[in-house]
Structures are given as structure tokens and as C-alpha cells.
């Protein structure tokens, strides 16, 4: 059962790569910031429809939840902006490696301390080796 969620996460990454390659083309025609805007705008419509027909949770929890739980959207925009700004200066390769290192190291720390409501799971040898292998993979690919 757990393996299924690993596969879903793999699929998520695959979708992201296709998306990136296609949006690179769209960005040439309409601009990068505009492409991000289009992505979020269209995503809101798609999810609005999904929510209307299949939403089983409670959207009203939005109003009761602590405010920091509502920051997901802004953080996504910060991420996108940081990439758009740095690529022209340091190139796609270095940007990708830096983003992923930041992402992986921080994920490990967040989970280790159980921050942001995540399940507390300690850093161990295997996790550190996993991050190192991923960094090696990224350097080799560039």
C-alpha cells in the first residue's frame, strides 16, 4: 500500500517535467510571469470543478484553521519567482541543483523536528545517503 504512494509521487514529478517543458514554450509567447498566472488561474478552475463534484472534505475549515496553514499558495509563488529570477543569472542546471538541495535538506529537518504539523520521523543514515545520492545524480545530469 505504501509503495502505491511512492508511485503516485513519482507520477507527480513526471507530470512536473512535462509541464515545465511545455510551459517553456508557452513562456516564450506570453511571458514567464504570465505563464505562472495562467497555470494558477487554470488550476483554480480545474480544482473548483473537481471540488464541486468530488469534494468530500470541508472547505469551511479554511476559516477556522490557524492562518499559517493557509500559506501554501504564497509559498508556491515565492518558489516560482525565485526560479524565474535566478535562471538568467546562474543557468537552469545550477538553479535546479540549488532548489532541490534546499528542498531535500529542509524536508529532512522539518520531519526530524515534526515542524508544520508533519509526522515526526528522525533523520537517519539512510535518509542522509538518499539526499547525497540525489545530489550526485543531479550533478551528473548537468
Amino acid at each position: 500500500m505504501r509503495i502505491l504512494f511512492y508511485l503516485l509521487a513519482l507520477l507527480a514529478g513526471a507530470a512536473l517535467s512535462f509541464e515545465g517543458a511545455i510551459y517553456a514554450e508557452l513562456g516564450k509567447a506570453i511571458g514567464q510571469l504570465e505563464t505562472s498566472f495562467y497555470n494558477f488561474f487554470m488550476g483554480s478552475i480545474i480544482l473548483g470543478l473537481l471540488w464541486l463534484f468530488f469534494g468530500k472534505g470541508s472547505l469551511s475549515y479554511t476559516l477556522e484553521a490557524p492562518k499559517w496553514l493557509l500559506l501554501g499558495g504564497v509559498l508556491g509563488v515565492v518558489y516560482l519567482t525565485s526560479i524565474v529570477v535566478s535562471v538568467p543569472f546562474v543557468g537552469v542546471g545550477v538553479t535546479m541543483v540549488a532548489v532541490i538541495i534546499g528542498q531535500l535538506v529542509m524536508s529532512m529537518i522539518i520531519e526530524h523536528f515534526g515542524w508544520l504539523g508533519s509526522k515526526k520521523t528522525r533523520i537517519n543514515k539512510e535518509k542522509i545517503l538518499a539526499v547525497i545520492s540525489m545530489v550526485v545524480a543531479l550533478i551528473l545530469i548537468n
Binding site: 538541495i101 529542509m106 520531519e111
Partner: peptide, 14 residues
């Protein structure tokens, strides 16, 4: 850019 990556991991946790 590192900060960009950090925000992404914070986003998935939140």
C-alpha cells in the same frame, strides 16, 4: 534559489 527550495518543502508540509 535555496530559499526557493525551502519554501517548496514548507509548502508540502503545510
Amino acid at each position: 534559489t535555496l530559499i526557493g527550495g525551502i519554501t517548496l518543502s514548507a509548502q508540502s508540509s503545510i
